[in-house]
Computed example of a mutant assay.
Amino acid sequence: MSIDELQEYGLSEMDDGEIRQFLSSQKVGVLGLPDANEPYLLPLSFGYDGEERLYFTYLIGSSSRKGTMSEETDTASFLVYKVDTMYNWQSVLLTGTITDVPDTEWDDLEETMSDVWRPNLFETASLSGDVKLYEFRIREQTGVKHQGLPPGFEAGGESN
Rank of each mutant, 00 (worst) to 15 (best):
M1V: 05
S2W: 06
D4V: 05
E5H: 08
L6N: 01
L6K: 01
Q7V: 00
Y9H: 02
Y9S: 00
G10N: 00
S12D: 06
E13N: 03
M14F: 00
E18G: 05
I19A: 00
R20Q: 07
F22G: 00
L23K: 09
S25V: 03
Q26A: 03
Q26E: 11
Q26H: 08
K27L: 13
K27D: 13
K27T: 15
V28T: 13
V28H: 11
V30P: 10
V30M: 13
G32C: 14
L33Q: 05
L33S: 09
N37P: 00
P39A: 05
L42Q: 14
F46V: 10
F46I: 09
G47L: 13
E52A: 12
E52I: 10
Y55N: 07
Y55K: 02
F56V: 04
L59C: 08
L59F: 05
S62V: 10
S63E: 14
S64V: 06
R65T: 12
R65I: 12
T68Q: 15
M69E: 12
M69F: 14
S70F: 11
S70N: 10
E71L: 08
E72F: 01
E72A: 06
T73Y: 02
S77P: 09
L79V: 15
V80G: 10
Y81I: 01
D84S: 12
D84F: 14
Y87R: 13
Y87Q: 14
L93S: 09
G96T: 08
G96P: 06
T97F: 04
I98E: 03
T99M: 09
T99Y: 12
P102Q: 07
E105N: 07
W106T: 01
D107R: 08
E110N: 04
E110S: 04
D115N: 13
W117S: 10
R118G: 06
L121P: 00
T124D: 09
L127H: 03
L127I: 05
D130C: 00
D130N: 04
V131A: 02
V131F: 02
L133F: 14
Y134Q: 02
F136V: 04
R137H: 13
I138L: 11
R139C: 06
R139A: 08
E140N: 14
E140T: 12
E140S: 11
T142F: 00
V144T: 09
V144G: 00
K145C: 03
K145L: 04
K145V: 06
H146G: 01
H146W: 08
P151C: 08
N160Y: 11
